[in-house]
Computed example of a mutant assay.
Amino acid sequence: MKSISSISPSEITSLCIGKFDGVHIAHQMLLKQNDRNGGVLKIVMDVPPFLTPCQEDYISCPIFRIDLKEIKEMGASDFSLFLKQRFPKLAKIIVGYDFRFGKNRSYGIDDLRAFFEVCVVDEVKVGGVSVHKQKIISHLLAGEILEANAMLGRRYEIKGHIIRGQGIGSKECVPTLNLEVRDYALPKSGVYATLSEVDGVVYKSVSFLGHRLSSDGQYAIETHLLDACIVPKVQEVRISFVDFIRENKRFEALELLKEQIQRDIEQSRLLLSRF
């Protein structure tokens, strides 16, 4: 079991248990039930793409990680003993309504009540739909940013490192920061109104994800900062998605592309006017 926290497991009195693969509003409900000396036991079974590759960005309490393989064959007694050995003061467990564990997922909430106080968080729905990682990813793939953000309880974000682009933007169109992004679940190709954090400052921006159909055909992630022209001091940029503007499409002439970019910028300004 691995932990990124300097807090000793011996201090933990309550523990939220789950995959925490999105830190969405259902996960946030679990976290609200934690004690002052509470932590998170993240069961690692995820494979890319991720909604939140770094859970520490959204969870303030200590996170302890355990690979599913270490516990998937355990019964209720073995799993409870495992927890007591690693968290001697553990008294309360917080789980979701559908929590299952052990061989063939044969054990559940009632099996743990003989060993711990168990707090169960009911199913969380948005618009009548249960909140789950895959539903959020489905919204992202459809460009449904408002719906994805509603389930997350925050704006969806990705982080990437600045790379060299084609150089066309700054010369012919508008300057952009070109990013290499790994492991994240990426929204549908197209243009978005976004907020981009560079060097700790958040700028209104318009961002593009997709294949550059009007030039080299390569996949790109680019963001243009509105009303700002900077030379970043650090190489990492965080983009948070506010709303979808339009589909990705091919332009037969550079002038047509430039005109569309200006319309995208104005639409982004309108959507970001409340920020």
Results as ranks from 00 to 15, higher is better:
C54S: 11
V95M: 03
K125V: 15
G38K: 06
I59L: 10
D111N: 14
C119R: 11
F101N: 01
D110C: 04
K72I: 08
D110P: 03
V120L: 08
D35G: 13
L81V: 10
P49Q: 09
K125F: 12
V129I: 15
V118G: 04
G128L: 14
L51H: 05
N37R: 10
G39M: 01
R65H: 13
F87S: 04
F101L: 04
L68V: 09
Q28G: 03
V23G: 00
I43T: 08
K89W: 07
L90V: 06
G102F: 10
K125H: 10
P53E: 12
I94Q: 02
N37A: 12
K69D: 14
E56H: 09
L90I: 06
I136A: 05
G75S: 08
D57P: 03
K89V: 04
I25P: 00
F116D: 06
L83M: 12
K69H: 09
L68W: 09
T52M: 10
H132M: 09
K92Y: 06
E123G: 04
K72M: 11
L31V: 03
L68E: 14
A114V: 05
Q85I: 07
G108D: 10
F101R: 03
L30H: 03
V121H: 01
V47D: 07
C16V: 06
R100K: 15
Q28S: 09
V40Y: 01
K89A: 07
Y107G: 03
M45Y: 11
D46H: 08
L83V: 13
Y97G: 00
V44Q: 06
D57V: 01
L15Q: 10
D35Y: 04
